[in-house]
């Protein structure tokens, strides 16, 4: 865009608004070019304006693949909790489906209903599918997405996910307009077709004034975002209200910039 020639005056905010509109329009077109089907636009919002505004579609877009991985193997429960908290935010009352195939996750235990409820996810809404190997898990995930019955599908798949497999999942999700969340325990290789990639790490929880834990905290590092920019946040999840918020200590961006991940410096 050419720099403004006229001196700054009162019309500037007006022009900014026009510029925003153009950018929005471009984003919408980009999404169409990339194949998000028309009429199925929608997103799984965090209910947190800082994140939702940063993400191009106002949340995790429907009809795309979102990858959640862990900062270290010990952070797997944290990543699982993040996944469940996101699933719980799926609008409507249609069922949710969770495919479990990861041996690493199985080593951390099995889903516990009361614990799911504590993360805001009604256990009666969730269907668990346990498979023996990754091949069956891929099949089950694709089958579930293609059925267009669950409101969202999540899948904990370990092991290598080659380009062909990830493309199949991507096309299946795009056809069905269903958000597909992939939990990749301890995998360093990313899923090629993922629209967003999150790396979750545990952080010491927030304490209330009595010194009791008031909410979980996670380092949420958005490492990759199609049509958007990577960024990191310190997310907090309140047990009582089941809502995301930014941890008070690092809500200030100047503090967040000092974070450990190299991508932070890039994003500014």
């Amino acid at each position: 865009m050419s720099p403004a020639v006229s001196p700054p005056d009162a019309r500037l905010p007006h022009r900014d608004a026009r510029r925003d509109a153009v950018v929005d329009e471009l984003r919408r077109l980009m999404a169409r070019v990339e194949g998000v089907p028309k009429g199925r636009e929608g997103a799984l919002s965090f209910g947190l304006s800082a994140l939702d505004q940063h993400l191009p579609q106002g949340g995790l877009a429907f009809g795309t693949v979102h990858e959640i991985s862990t900062a270290s193997e010990a952070d797997l429960p944290a990543a699982f909790g993040f996944l469940l908290a996101l699933l719980a935010r799926t609008p409507g009352s249609a069922p949710l489906l969770l495919v479990l195939a990861s041996k690493k996750l199985a080593r951390c235990g099995l889903p516990h209903g009361a614990g799911l409820a504590a993360l805001g996810l009604a256990p009666s809404r969730l269907t668990l599918v346990e498979t023996e190997n990754a091949a069956e898990a891929l099949w089950a995930t694709e089958e579930a997405v293609r059925a267009r019955a669950p409101a969202a599908v999540a899948s904990a798949i370990g092991g290598k996910l080659d380009l062909k497999a990830s493309q199949r999942l991507h096309y299946a999700a795009r056809e069905a307009g269903v958000p597909l969340l992939l939990l990749r325990p301890g995998e360093t290789e990313s899923v090629a077709t993922a629209a967003t990639r999150w790396r979750i790490g545990a952080a010491p929880g927030a304490q209330d004034r009595f010194g009791l834990l008031a909410g979980w905290r996670w380092h949420a590092n958005l490492e990759r975002c199609r049509n958007g920019e990577p960024r990191a946040w310190m997310l907090e999840f309140d047990h009582a209200t089941h809502r995301f918020s930014l941890a008070a200590a690092v809500a200030d961006p100047s503090l967040a910039r000092g974070g450990e991940a190299p991508s932070l410096r890039r994003t500014g």
Partner: peptide, 22 residues
């Protein structure tokens, strides 16, 4: 569609692989 999906998953993966928590 959802019940059909559950049926399909159960045939391939075994009946006890698809469950709900009660």
């Amino acid at each position: 569609r959802f019940t059909n999906l559950l049926d399909a998953l159960r045939q391939r993966l075994g009946a006890e692989s698809v469950r709900h928590l009660a």
